[in-house]
Design a binder for these strands. Structure first.
Lengths: 342, 342
DNA sequence: TTGTATGCGTTATCAA
DNA sequence: TTGATAACGCATACAA
């Protein structure tokens, strides 16, 4: 402890390394940045010096000189949602594995002013790229109108179209859910949708409409919810009076769970009187009663893809083209067979 | 658009501001850093120039010169847990409001090596301070043994003792839960605990033990779980055979929900045969069936306090002394009165 | 293959 | 109260 106590007064700089390796600091810089023309032996000497000094380049100095920060920004809304959280964790890990840090910024609200300010902040931090997890149409509109120079990749924008996004085929997922209900003999299927302006809400609703249309069944006007279990609860109580419905596809599990609560309170039995299917497969879905049939999307994989895509753009390589992630239907007892109509 | 199109080629620097205000860049720096000795009129001129140029100091340059980054690191484990997520969102907002950015780092595992490496990474990013949300004893042991120079504040360490932590009184919360059961006439209360090494698990278990002791009731040996609903499910099936238990206090809601699932499968009715109470008040708790009595902790407030505390340390001011946050008991139908023993 | 000189945008030190 | 001038640690020409 008394020995080399001075060594940790100030972290080693590139010049310390250079001195120890008997080269110029420039050569050290070359080794650091994997410059091709450097003699193997020199390189090794430098590497040894780096190791003995436990040298790590100062990111601030590097950023200042190169105007690259190795920093990725995450612009998010609605953290706390199961999918978003899973994606963020995965993004962080994937980024760190590739030598990037993460700066998170959660939108206080989705007004254009707040969105603009958020992007400005991230840009001001000189992030090398931004991953957007704020699946509202207006967010993308605002960002698109900002004329940004930093690369932006988004999760879950409109299915297809935009090249700079990775997505799961939520429309397909919704279709799978509704077709499952139809296959069980249901013809009167209602949809509790997510709020307007939400891309995922639109995709899932679209899937519902398509499935009904193709089965030649009348699509009921969807009810707009707000993703919360509280809304589902409210809707369930209201809907229990309507005897024309035998099944409901809720746009997410929370609303589905609230819905079942509302039905229960009103005396409607699930799944005997009405079947419910959700979306997301949140961790409790398998354990509540009635257990909840739902659609699972691998948000973590989506996050990893976003990182891969973004780094490719940053490094000006060809970004890999990902197919849309395929959701998985999870069938549990909340949906049961029913006699088809006469 | 053609006018001053060149202005956005490169962000304005401190020298641009100086030129426009007809002062030296040094004077601008003084204004920026609220140096006392500066003439009001000069100051105003500089401020105007800053505004017209939309100047923002370059954080990398600032960090390089001052070795302060205005960056806070969040070292976390178990993101995805409801409490952790709430806290992180609140921390981020509070930090941004005070001009700090957030760098998140989620531990891949809690081996000493991983913890050390994580702290090293954060330190290397030159964070001005670290907030730790990884409530395992060993994490704090490792960090404590690292001899860090950066200020560290942690959420939920051992109740009391450590000055550099903010905490909720989870022991009290657990007591409230168990005392509620006892007050309902239960004398055979089992505890499903969290995993060993988890501070929160210990606090909640301690609360259980204390409550039972003070009520002069025999404490049953707690069962160690892993926080997951799956474990609760497993435990419920096993326990349903034991007819000596009339109530269970689960260390978190997920295990409680899984537990009810297991009981249900085994034919034990909740709350008629056995009462269940949880901890956390996750969003679905109010909507599942049977609804879940539980204990609510304001993790967001805890996060805000951590930021306040950490910034005080960084600025070398007196850190405010927070009392432990008081949890709130949420009573729902999963717990009901029971005839007291003869 | 290696080294020298210069600049990145700030803060800090010293004079005036 | 202000202004030169020198760091801060690195990358990037350019030269050798």
């Amino acid at each position: 402890m008394p020995a080399n106590g001075e060594a940790r007064a100030r972290p080693a700089s590139i010049r310390d390394v250079a001195r120890l390796a008997s080269v110029s600091h420039q050569t050290v810089s070359r080794v650091l940045n994997e410059h091709p023309s450097i003699r193997a032996e020199t390189r090794q000497r430098v590497l040894d010096a780096i190791r003995t000094l436990d040298y790590r380049p100062n990111p601030a100095a590097r950023a200042l000189a190169s105007s690259r920060t190795n920093l990725l920004g995450i612009l998010s809304a609605t953290v706390g949602e199961y999918g978003t959280t899973s994606a963020i964790v995965a993004i962080e890990r994937a980024a760190r594995e590739r030598g990037y840090s993460i700066s998170t910024l959660n939108l206080p609200d989705s007004t254009p002013a707040a969105i603009g300010e958020a992007v400005r902040l991230l840009q001001h931090e000189q992030v090398d790229g931004i991953i957007v997890l704020a699946p509202q149409v207006r967010v993308y509109n605002v960002i698109g109108g900002l004329g940004l120079t930093v690369p932006v990749v988004s999760l879950q924008t409109s299915t297809g179209g935009d090249a700079e996004s990775v997505a799961a085929d939520q429309m397909l997922g919704a279709r799978m859910a509704v077709e499952h209900l139809i296959g069980l003999g249901h013809s009167d299927v209602l949809h509790i949708a997510g709020p307007q302006d939400w891309i995922e809400a639109e995709s899932r609703m679209r899937g519902y409409l398509d499935a009904m249309f193709e089965a030649d069944l009348p699509a009921l006007p969807p009810i707009r919810g707000d993703w919360t279990a509280d809304f589902g609860h409210f809707a369930g109580r209201e809907l229990s009076a309507r005897r024309d419905i035998t099944a409901v596809f809720a746009a997410n599990d929370l609303m589905a769970i609230g819905l079942m609560h509302g039905f229960r309170e009103a005396g409607a039995r699930v799944p005997d009187d009405v079947c419910v299917i959700g979306f997301d497969d949140i961790p409790v879905a398998a354990h509540i009663w009635p257990t909840l049939s739902t659609v699972r999307v691998d948000f973590a994989e989506l996050g990893r893809r976003a990182v891969t895509h973004l780094l490719a753009i940053i490094d000006r390589q060809d970004a890999p083209v990902f197919e849309m992630l395929r959701p998985e239907l999870i069938v549990r007892e909340s949906t049961t067979r029913r006699a088809t109509r006469p």
